[in-house]
Design a binder for these strands. Structure first.
Lengths: 360, 360
DNA sequence: GGGCAAAGTGGGACCGCTCCCACATATTTC
DNA sequence: GAAATATGTGGGAGCGGTCCCACTTTGCCC
């Protein structure tokens, strides 16, 4: 970004017509040129392009032809300035910890978001805000009206993005509920229900000494999954206090599993709040000489690809990650259009594989 | 995106001052208001904000104060229109096959790109172009001057994005070389050299009956890795014709391995052109009763996290994926600034683990 | 202390679009 | 057939910045 001061003379000014010797670009046509060629006024041309009323058929057609002959594409910036809507939305992700971003989870959300946005005419601006600096940038981005709305992923407690979200007047959609703040519009997965499914499955297959590897406790999803686990045990009047926290990573899961084994050598079932952690747990169990599922049954969460490739394959809770992204984007589009959608909780389902087979 | 025609009366027009009852937004200040408050002309205010020359210290300060009091943030759209530079770049990914996008590879590139862009003032617009429709969108996006430049990932042969890239006059940086077209600016990894490292390692540890699981043959990276593999064998005057192609996925790798075993039961070493495929190969080998590395040594490519968690852990070729993204963004920024950078080939290195230990 | 360059200032055109409004022309309606 | 309405049309004022340019003020030099 060159200092604007140093701009040369005549900078930014155009020659009257497609100058053959211009540095690059065949000079993209403007609406005025289209209008001129079609023999109508700019107003009519504008209306014709936006197929609005009050344009006679012949003129409409003339404009269409002129536009296609000139290869006219409206200047998005000019339109944005005139209409005060930009045509793009932001997806911001706190990227301080690699856990959230490293795994395929995020890619899937992205695919969902992109798919939903594809149906509208909105572009996706991605912001990975690590550090204070990134947060400030996001704040500026929003305040400089470069965006029509924001999606925020998985806010941790005290996440600075919370502040940013509160400070903007743009529509904000959250992916996952924030732990502390009250969110007006969000899309979440039924974490509690999913975890409950997992624990119930373990109980149904006869396991009674259940432990869990929970996620970081400043994340709503972690808390909810732990809660769901406890829900299921409560029904059977079993205590749900064999808990170790980890950071959703493989290594973290392995370490947590080791701690659990040390504290509760007689455990016979484990629910890990992510597939990565479950995979790590599998390794730790193997290292400790436990057989899965004979000695210890393991259930994961996410149903990532890795779950199909562990040994044994992971029984896990499948959640519609792409759907999450899709719903977020759809909700944001609605908000931008002036609707007032309601929060959405997406369902989960259990996928049974070798690490925790069903009863019998 | 409401039809502009149906816009209500008075739409888009502002009240003179912060109307208390306005629907939302405390009405963001404009440069005129800052100038007024600072008691200077708009020109001076503009110059002061862009800290250009020709502003006296006191006025400069007055403007700064007024701006901060008003919470002024320049309207990016207006600035873009006036300067004819938008302040954002596009990263486009052909997303027809999940292979490219599904694995963590892409997330890492993204992180690198974002990190490099963070240093400039450019935003990142992400486009996952699947289908014809997506390609058309990208084309429009570029022609509508909503972006200052483009990064394109890993173009396949005949990828429609090639056409898009050729049609635009914006700076284009490629991640990975295109197979067919001649690229002017790209960042690539030394695929050939990396593959050669892998094969040399296998040879050095005494393997002589080497096979390879190559990627799709319409991707430069695949061809180059296959070439590198052949390079190493050529030195030893060994034929490099035990080749099976797969699609970079786990399942594909497993199937390819099975085919290789059927065709060449006596093979003692395999180079797979991705860690995912190598993992699949590991499974297939295990299923066939071969021990790794005793009977068959396996080397992967990528050094993704999965490589550390297979059994045995994968010897693999590590490439700077984040660096790739970083260099791409940096190169694009240079181009936008008017420099003419040269293509970059990033180095690779071998990471030795259990699946193919070194000699002795 | 008059002359000249440099620094500082504000007016206003412009970027390319949208949209209001006044006016011209076609279509009803009584 | 005149009046009332509907439909079409183009002029022109924004949107909120940047930047050129003419002009005033200062600083410097001999």
């Amino acid at each position: 970004m060159a200092d604007p001061t140093t701009a040369g003379p005549g900078d930014g000014h155009r020659e009257g017509s497609p100058a053959p010797g211009s540095p690059h670009s065949p000079r993209v046509a403007t609406l005025d040129e289209v209008a001129l060629r079609a023999g109508v006024s700019r107003s009519v041309a504008s209306r014709a392009m936006n197929n609005a009323r009050n344009v006679s058929a012949p003129k409409r057609e003339a404009v269409a032809r002129a536009a296609s002959e000139l290869g006219y594409v409206p200047n998005a910036t000019a339109r944005a300035l005139a209409t005060n809507t930009v045509g793009s939305v932001v997806l911001a992700v706190s990227h301080d910890d690699p856990a959230l971003f490293g795994d395929p989870f995020f890619s899937q959300v992205l695919v969902g978001v992109a798919a939903a946005l594809d149906r509208s005419e909105l572009d996706l601006t991605l912001m990975l805000t690590s550090s204070e600096r990134g947060r400030a940038r996001l704040e500026r981005l929003l305040r400089s009206r470069r965006s029509d709305g924001v999606m925020l992923m998985a806010l941790r407690k005290d996440d600075p993005l919370n502040r940013v979200a509160a400070a903007t007047d743009l529509p904000v959609v959250l992916g996952g509920r924030p732990l502390d703040a009250e969110a007006r519009w969000y899309v979440d997965v039924d974490n509690r229900g999913g975890a409950r499914l997992a624990a119930e499955h373990l109980l149904r297959s006869g396991r009674r000494r259940l432990a869990t590897i929970a996620g970081p406790d400043d994340l709503h999803a972690s808390v909810a999954r732990l809660q769901g686990f406890a829900d299921a045990l409560a029904v059977e009047r079993l205590p749900a206090d064999w808990v170790e926290h980890a950071d959703f990573t493989y290594e973290g899961g392995a370490r947590a599993m080791t701690r659990l084994l040390a504290a509760h050598p007689d455990l016979d079932g484990v629910f890990a709040a992510s597939d990565n952690m479950a995979s790590g747990a599998l390794r730790a169990l193997k290292a400790a000489g436990r057989r899965v599922p004979e000695d210890v049954a393991v259930v994961g969460y996410d149903d990532l690809e890795i779950a199909r490739h562990t040994e044994p394959a992971l029984t896990t809770v499948s959640q519609p990650i792409r759907g999450l992204g899709q719903e977020m984007a759809t909700m944001l589009v609605r908000l931008i259009d002036g609707d007032t959608p309601t929060p959405i909780i997406l369902p989960t389902r259990l996928v049974v594989r070798g690490s925790a087979p069903g009863p019998t």
